[in-house]
């Protein structure tokens, strides 16, 4: 029942998105512009600063993710879908998991554009240790989206939610950014430091477990009037 509810919500979000393609196009384009803006700041005399590629990749993920979260829930608010979902006889944690899965799919699509772009622009060896990079991206995105989905959902009814989402989300997700950037930078070195990457993946995995649990636990009281 739990998984069925979550899956139905993912299906609903996918159907809406496939019909309009609004979020994927705007978010992916925004992520690409982010990479360019940071490239102008961090590339000197044709060469990027050390570790710039990893930093730019994760900043673009965080910024694009915030935008996607805000837009996704704005859509829910606009059509009163979230209220309808909360009125439905479905368990609240299942609704949270469904929304989280939808955000994750969207962010994965954006990352599929971002990673090759960073490889192309900054000559980053993304294929040196592809499985470790994938593990970093997955665990980092899950951590970011887990906190982001809860905050975006609870801010739906709040005033000035557009500015409050990043204000709340960034200080909490700093460990994700540090771990993502340092782990990716370790993999992008001429000699990939696998030990380092593995340690950051472990920290991210731990972060994911704690914050997904905490979100499941607080979603119900937060979303009840």
């Amino acid at each position: 029942m739990f998984l069925r509810v979550a899956w139905l919500i993912v299906q609903k979000d996918l159907t809406v998105e496939v019909r309009s393609r609004e979020l994927i196009y705007t978010t992916a384009f925004f992520a690409v512009s982010c990479v360019l803006v940071f490239a102008f700041a961090l590339v000197r005399e044709g060469r990027p600063l050390e570790d710039a590629a990893a930093g730019i990749l994760w900043i673009a993920i965080a910024f694009a993710g915030t935008l996607a979260l805000g837009r996704t829930f704005e859509r829910e608010r606009h059509t009163e879908t979230l209220r309808a979902l909360l009125l439905a006889p479905a368990s609240r944690p299942a609704i949270y998991v469904g929304k989280l899965a939808g955000i994750l799919l969207l962010m994965a699509a954006v990352e599929a554009v971002l990673v090759p772009l960073v490889a192309l622009f900054f000559d980053a060896p993304v294929l040196a240790r592809p499985m470790y990079l994938l593990a970093l991206l997955v665990s980092g995105t899950v951590g970011f989206a887990a906190v982001g989905t809860l905050f975006a959902a609870m801010l739906v009814r709040a005033r000035s939610r557009d500015v409050l989402l990043p204000v709340l989300l960034y200080p909490i997700t700093i460990p994700v950014i540090i771990a993502g950037v340092r782990g990716t930078a370790a993999l992008f070195q001429p000699e990939p430091d696998v030990e380092m990457a593995r340690m950051w993946i472990a920290i991210l995995g731990f972060f994911d477990v704690v914050f997904v649990t905490l979100s499941l636990w607080t979603f119900e009281p937060l979303m009840t009037e």
Binding site: F151, M154, T218
Partner: peptide, 17 residues
């Protein structure tokens, strides 16, 4: 600045923090 119900939003922020 959260408007009505902001105590709850704040509570979530404090727990996560």
């Amino acid at each position: 600045y959260g408007g009505p119900g902001s105590e709850k939003l704040g509570a979530a922020m404090a727990i996560f923090g």
